[in-house]
Design a protein around this nucleic acid. Sequence first.
DNA 1: GTCTATACCTCGATAGAC
DNA 2: GTCTATCGAGGTATAGAC
Lengths: 212, 212
Amino acid sequence: MASAVPTPRPGTPPKRSFREQMHIAREDAIVSAVNRLLAEKGFDAMTVDEVAVEVGIAKASLYKHFPSKEDLAAAAMARVMERARAFLEGLDGSRAPLELLRDAARWTMEVQLAGEMPSLPSENSSLRATLTTHKGYVDGLMEVSERLGAWISAAQADGSLNPALPPIAVLYTLYARACDPVLGFLKGAGLYSNEQIIEMVLSTCFDGLRKR
Amino acid sequence: MASAVPTPRPGTPPKRSFREQMHIAREDAIVSAVNRLLAEKGFDAMTVDEVAVEVGIAKASLYKHFPSKEDLAAAAMARVMERARAFLEGLDGSRAPLELLRDAARWTMEVQLAGEMPSLPSENSSLRATLTTHKGYVDGLMEVSERLGAWISAAQADGSLNPALPPIAVLYTLYARACDPVLGFLKGAGLYSNEQIIEMVLSTCFDGLRKR
DNA sequence: GTCTATACCTCGATAGAC
DNA sequence: GTCTATCGAGGTATAGAC
């Protein structure tokens, strides 16, 4: 689209780098606002006007950065997926795989209870189309899934994870903790702290409802 | 509102009863359509126009039966709650409480996989207000919760259910199976039958991910 | 690139004839 | 009670001045 990019002369300070930094900082602020609003109200209830107000720019300016509401949501999902990837990468891979999976599930719940987990409808087709074509999101999802999948296999091999469950069922079960409504229900009950809630849901997830 | 109701003469067949039967039958058709559309697309994506088209009446006629979109959804929720209540009532109460809880969870998943489970956003406040003032829904929810609560207590007393979990956490965990996205994920994978999917999720719910 | 202003659309809800 | 026709609110996206 933009063809006339001025070539900086030798010795000239890199103006374009500064502008790009501003550009990136603004997009970062936009994604932060989108992330917060998606976590608070969900995709359908979030309006682009709200995003513009929260960022403090005009709505039309938003559309210079992101071509559609779906792309805004995809950017937020890509960021949280990158956060997940970085978290998993930072874990000590020499520990027991079951403990690593537990830490992964705990992390998603902490993010959700902190109001930082975007919630998207699973049925919206235009949104799914945008998500599946968003490179950052898809790449992050792939890497996260491969890492978790390796730990699942290892945990089944060492006898700590139920080997009768297909690995994909385990993977989906862990992903589902990120949007588990039980967290909100228990929070709404007002009887337990966030730590207690997470320990309870972790217990039901890994140990089940039946007594051991 | 309607003040001029003709008084039937003695010996005249009960016309009003017939009219009411028609009225009930039409409202039943409306609730069925709403239930199906809520299960398919969710509350936000469902439009009142779609409901009218599916029922085969004008949109304005819908509003003669139900005063708002929220009331349509509440009616659908009340019906499915009544179905749940009737299912639980039909179970053999002399069986082991843990088995009764398992049957309850299985039923909600069967309803979901059959495309008959309405899905509502948990954050929409106007919807929540309507739901909490809908007598049929609230009464059904109370009775279902009391019945499940009794079985939960009994199962913890007989040592089959983890006694360390608060009963309310168990109750919410069971309710959450009705909208568990894992069912749809696994269905979308195309690798397993509905029965296999339900058995897998039941296993993770009651036995947990860890090996026993 | 950002702003104001608006086009265009969809949706929930209603008025009024029949 | 049902219909046609429409209103008003609110949504995404864009045009054009600066």
